[in-house]
Design a protein around this nucleic acid. Structure first.
Length: 853
RNA sequence: GCGGGCGUGGCGAAACGGUAGACGCAACGGACUUAAAAUCCGUUCUCCACAAGGGGGUGAGGGUUCGAGUCCCUCCGCCCGCACCA
């Protein structure tokens, strides 16, 4: 019984693909192209099983499309800037560039061992000046087009990483990498004007038909377009006007107060001569970052003593508060409160004993008795208590009041967005330098293009916290390009999402002297199939969509969207173990006591924890090298594609990978020790076959059709099941039947070709063993013969009153009346009909007969 | 709170509105073996029955339909995203 020798086989085919440059892709405008891309990895040190699942899917698609005749681009590179490299430098004294390069070498070798069909000639690493120089140029172009600007603003500060974070990088008030509570800091930093494209980024989502609905919804919500109105309120001091934004101008007559953000300019101005208010504002900032505030989120206000005059009824006054829940960054930083129709305003009004006047009457409610208790009424109804708006619906009132405000020049209808500009400055070393110079006389001066790239200095020290670029003895001191007087470089570097926002363009012409060659990009783009984790649903995917728009505006290329098709795969999970103290344990640390209960090395009981995403901290990581050493790349690839739908999480189990290994050996045995003598390759199929073999041939062609459809629809787990089914059927092909060898050969060759994208080494080995000189990688995808795939006999279910009572085996496409007759003649049916005629009979051709007694 | 998704055997899961549980894992029984591994054959939703056969079954309840895991309504549970966005 021979075992498949994956070690020699996998190395052999990897070498052959490499030597023949099988997967190098070439610009060929006449051919249909297909660009497959997996989100490129951060070179953290080792590839993990989750990466491999992602890349196996991409590789499967790439090889499949190649077999289908497409000119495929399938590149790989490294998202090489980032904090872990810098942290390694701080902890271990190794330079980030060296740490990164070593990790890349390790991970590239791991990718090669998996046999992925990448065009390695296009490999890029974003930390190379040959890469990042181009984004420095882009930034200068953005500056020229006013798509980049510098602004002092309240930013998210991660106290662990000592850097600013973008809004998208703050999850539940914590830094996305460190989990540390984010603080608010007032800093000048560079922003990219993503909000310029708010409408376009939102509206174009509907055209991204091959994106998951959920990702589109997340982006839609993130952009957060709200229709409303701006309304001017004059204060009783007679000189100040406060503008508020509202989505409910129809409730203007229900206004009970005005609330300003603590950072609203007028609030700050009042605070400067009111110590109590200044203290309140300071407190808001303090509490705003504490854990307690995020959990309790108590609404608090400071009554300024000033009143605002109702814009549509000068006789009415409402108090003006400074309130902790009003955000300066959204709308105008000021709101009017209508307690009857907004829950938060109601809570605030109850706390400060403000009047609650309903202005929207629910359907069928009595205007005399309707009152708000603890719950604000937020649904549609009829406007009342509202002067000229009385009797209108909410929608009508919004329009009418909008028109009136505009006529009186007291406001206008407008749109507000949740999306804010993307802050890209990071106070760290291991990133792309921002190519500007600060000059005392000339202000901010862009680095001249001829001076690009601004390279990172190599001689930096990490002994003290903070940004090493800032304290480097010489790097930042330069002459101002304009006036030539001493000036300093910007020492912030770009957010690393800057690099990943355009790498897919660089791959189109990875060695071009410019960022990319326009014709190459316009040929290959957009990416036809992009594959990665859902964690980038707003971050990377939104930034990239913005980038292609910004680059288009700067004249780089004509492209609307970067990714035509997107697939977000699930995570790979694994069993975890914890002891009574909640400490995570490695599986090797666990033994069992005499009663068979799991215990740790010191005899304490162990709890089998829940399935968790593999992570070092939870000690449930399965090492990729161990898997490949034990079972080979194809077995790992097969297991990762089987058992779970690709979008769902996959549980890693030892028994599961062993099952895949059994299948690999079964397939190998079927070709190396076939149960029947096979005719030579390319022999014709005999004219007559045993009926059982005709069925097997039918299955072969059904499998081709089904696997093709499954791969097209990203149902890899079903494709695997289909292939197992065919394998099971081929195992039953025995020599005594007429034509067995020829059918078995057809079946095995089909299997090898269908397995090609999934288990490429084994497929090549099978193909060679079957006597072929060619490679599967160069063999077209098999075609299903529809005539062969069609069954001549079909099994038809017979239901009586909705219950299955019998089945009928009949020739395919039998006439409906014959099928009905046959069904009604069945004893199981006549018994239930009890001599009576059926009330109704429904015949679905080749499927079912439904009899109603 | 708002938005979205999902509930099917012991487990991962299949199922154009048409024979629920394909395929795999695990388990059990058997063959081969001195033995084990590997391999092969068989059983495995559940209940009644020796069997033939029959009843029940896709989170719960209702509805549409000749026919519902699938469509509609109500509820329960789990997961994810956003969260003071005015």
């Amino acid at each position: 019984m021979s075992r498949y020798n994956f070690k020699t086989s996998e190395a052999k085919w990897q070498r052959r693909w490499r030597e023949r440059r099988t997967f190098a892709s070439h610009h060929a405008p006449a051919r249909p192209k297909y660009y497959v891309l997996e989100m490129f990895p951060y070179p953290s040190g080792n590839l993990h099983v989750g990466h491999v699942r992602n890349y196996t899917m991409g590789d499967l698609v790439a090889r499949y499309r190649r077999a289908r005749g497409y000119n495929v681009l399938h590149p790989m590179g490294w998202d090489a800037f980032g904090l872990p490299a810098e942290n390694a430098a701080i902890a271990g004294g190794i330079h980030p560039a060296i740490w990164t390069a070593e990790n890349i070498a390790t991970m590239r070798a791991q990718l090669e061992r998996m046999g992925f069909a990448y065009d390695w000639s296009r490999e890029i690493a974003t930390c190379h000046p040959e890469y990042y120089r181009h984004e420095q140029k882009m930034f200068l172009d953005f500056l020229a087009k006013d798509l980049a600007y510098r602004k002092e603003s309240w930013v998210n500060w991660d106290p662990v990483d000592h850097t600013v974070l973008a809004n998208e990088q703050v999850i539940e008030g914590r830094g996305w990498r460190t989990g540390a509570l984010v603080e608010k800091r007032l800093l000048a930093q560079w922003n990219l004007r993503i909000t310029k494209y708010s409408d376009e980024l939102l509206d174009a989502l509907t055209r991204l038909e091959r994106w998951p609905e959920r990702v589109r919804l997340m982006q839609e919500h993130w952009i957060g377009r709200s229709h409303g109105a701006r309304v001017q309120w004059t204060l009783t001091d007679g000189k100040t006007t406060i503008e508020v934004f509202t989505t409910r101008p129809d409730t203007l007559y229900g206004a009970a107060f005005l609330a300003l953000s603590p950072h609203h300019p007028f609030a700050e101005a009042l605070g400067s001569d009111n110590p109590a208010l200044a203290e309140f504002i300071a407190e808001c900032d303090r509490i705003g970052t504490s854990e307690e505030a995020i959990e309790t989120a108590e609404k608090r206000g400071f009554r300024t003593g000033i009143e605002a005059i109702h814009p549509l009824d000068k006789s009415r006054r409402v108090p003006v508060y400074v309130a902790n829940f009003v955000l300066m960054e959204y709308g105008t930083g000021a709101v009017f409160g209508c307690p009857a129709h907004d829950q938060r305003d109601l809570d605030f009004a109850r706390k400060y004993e403000l009047p609650v006047v309903p202005v929207v009457l629910p359907p069928k409610a009595d205007p005399k008795s309707f009152a708000i208790e603890d719950v604000a009424y937020v649904d549609d109804g009829t406007i009342f208590n509202s002067s000229f708006l009385n009797g209108l619906s909410v929608a009508e009132a919004k329009r009418t009041v909008g028109e009136r405000l505009e006529a009186l020049e007291l406001g206008q209808r407008t749109i507000a967005y949740r999306l804010r500009d993307w802050g890209v400055s990071r106070q760290r070393y291991w990133g792309c330098p921002i190519p500007v110079i600060h000059c005392a006389d000339c202000g901010i001066v862009p680095v001249p293009e001829s001076d690009l790239p601004v390279k990172l200095p190599e001689d930096v020290d990490f002994d003290t916290p903070g940004n090493p670029l800032d304290r480097h003895p010489s790097w930042k001191h330069v002459a101002c390009p304009k006036c030539h007087k001493p000036a300093t470089r910007e020492t912030d570097t770009f957010d690393t999402f800057f690099e990943s926002s355009w790498y897919f363009l660089r791959f189109c012409s990875a060695r071009a002297p410019t960022a990319f060659q326009r014709e190459a990009a316009e040929y290959w783009m957009p990416v036809d199939q992009y594959i990665g984790g859902v964690e980038h649903a707003v971050l990377h995917l939104l930034y990239s969509r913005f980038f292609v728009r910004a680059l288009k505006e700067c004249g780089y290329l004509d492209l609307d969207e970067p990714f035509a098709g997107l697939f977000t795969q699930g995570m790979v999970c694994h069993q975890t173990y914890q002891n009574a103290e909640g400490e995570w344990l490695f599986p090797e640390e666990i033994t069992s006591d005499p009663a068979g209960r799991p215990i740790d090395e010191s005899g304490r009981p162990v709890l089998a924890g829940r399935l968790e995403k593999m992570s070092k901290s939870k000690k449930n990581v399965v090492g990729l090298d161990t898997i490949v050493d034990t079972y080979g790349a194809d077995t790992a690839r097969l297991y990762l594609m089987s058992n779970s739908p690709p979008e769902r999480d996959l549980e890693w189990t030892e028994t599961g990978i062993e099952g895949a290994w059994r299948q690999v050996n079964r397939l190998w045995r079927m070709v190396s020790e076939p149960s029947v003598v096979l005719p030579p390759a390319d022999s014709p199929m005999p004219d007559s076959l045993d009926p059982a073999l005709i069925k097997v041939r039918g299955l072969i062609h059904k499998t081709i059709a089904a696997v093709t459809e499954d791969i097209d629809k990203f149902r890899f787990n079903r494709a695997v099941a289909r292939l197992y089914e065919l394998t099971n059927a081929l195992e039953d092909v025995r020599g005594e039947k007429l034509g067995a060898g020829a059918v078995l050969r057809e079946g095995l060759e089909t299997l090898a070709r269908l397995l090609g994208p999934m288990m490429p080494h084994l497929a090549e080995e099978m193909w060679q063993e079957l006597g072929h000189e060619t490679m599967i990688a160069d063999t077209p995808w098999p075609r299903a013969d529809a005539d062969l795939a069609r069954d001549e006999q079909v099994t038809i279910a017979v239901q009586v009153n909705g219950k299955l009572r019998a089945t009928l085996d009949l020739p395919r496409d039998a006439a409906a009346n014959e099928v009905e007759e046959a069904a009604l003649a069945l004893p199981q049916v006549t018994r239930l009909l009890d001599g009576k005629a059926p009330r109704k009979v429904v015949v679905v051709p080749n499927r079912i007969v439904s009899v109603v007694a």
